[in-house]
Simulated scan of single mutants.
Amino acid sequence: MDPDECGIPVVLTADDVAKLNAEPRHAHEVQPVATCDLEGGHPGEHHAYLQETANRTGWWVRWEGNGFGGAYVLEVLRHCHLTRSVPYEDWTDEEACLLWRGHPGRCDF
């Protein structure tokens, strides 16, 4: 985890983990615990990236509080459009913001 990230965890149900891992364009195996990807001290709800989908979108989970046993929402959000002036096809983790479009706080690159 990046030391500047919030890091508050959320626990996903086994059914949701299975659903996300069955996504046709999945990029990796989703784990049952995710941590908030936003910058530490952010306002509002926590958000964590879970899985790639299609058309520059990804599955995200959002929640309030500490996320252990609490309610959360799964949603598909468009990727942030900000990059370091590199075409989308050439993005790497260092050149593109990996958060969603309209996120609060700084981009993560």
Results as ranks from 00 to 15, higher is better:
1 M>D: 07
3 P>Y: 15
43 P>F: 02
31 Q>T: 09
16 D>F: 10
18 A>E: 11
49 Y>W: 13
28 H>Q: 09
43 P>W: 00
12 L>K: 08
28 H>M: 10
17 V>Q: 03
14 A>I: 10
22 A>D: 13
24 P>Y: 10
6 C>D: 03
33 V>L: 07
28 H>C: 09
47 H>R: 06
41 G>V: 02
48 A>I: 14
22 A>E: 10
18 A>L: 07
35 T>L: 05
42 H>T: 01
7 G>L: 05
46 H>W: 01
11 V>W: 12
48 A>C: 12
42 H>I: 01
40 G>Y: 07
38 L>I: 02
36 C>F: 01
40 G>W: 05
9 P>Y: 04
40 G>V: 09
39 E>L: 06
35 T>Q: 08
43 P>D: 01
42 H>Y: 00
30 V>S: 04
38 L>T: 04
2 D>K: 15
38 L>S: 03
1 M>I: 08
27 A>F: 03
19 K>G: 07
20 L>N: 12
32 P>Q: 09
36 C>G: 03
39 E>M: 06
19 K>M: 14
39 E>N: 06
49 Y>V: 12
25 R>L: 13
17 V>K: 03
33 V>T: 12
9 P>C: 08
18 A>F: 01
4 D>G: 14
34 A>T: 05
11 V>K: 15
19 K>D: 08
17 V>S: 05
43 P>C: 00
18 A>W: 02
41 G>D: 04
43 P>R: 03
9 P>V: 03
37 D>E: 06
32 P>L: 08
49 Y>S: 13
14 A>L: 13
22 A>L: 04
23 E>V: 09
8 I>D: 00
47 H>C: 06
20 L>Y: 08
49 Y>D: 10
38 L>W: 04
37 D>V: 08
47 H>N: 05
16 D>T: 11
16 D>I: 10
24 P>L: 13
46 H>I: 05
29 E>M: 04
36 C>W: 05
37 D>Y: 07
21 N>E: 06
35 T>N: 04
46 H>F: 01
38 L>H: 06
41 G>L: 02
11 V>Q: 14
5 E>W: 13
26 H>Y: 15
45 E>A: 06
27 A>I: 05
21 N>G: 05
13 T>D: 11
11 V>E: 15
4 D>P: 08
13 T>H: 12
36 C>I: 04
44 G>W: 00
46 H>G: 01
27 A>H: 04
48 A>E: 12
39 E>I: 03
36 C>V: 02
10 V>I: 15
19 K>F: 12
4 D>H: 14
5 E>L: 09
33 V>A: 03
42 H>W: 00
36 C>P: 02
31 Q>A: 08
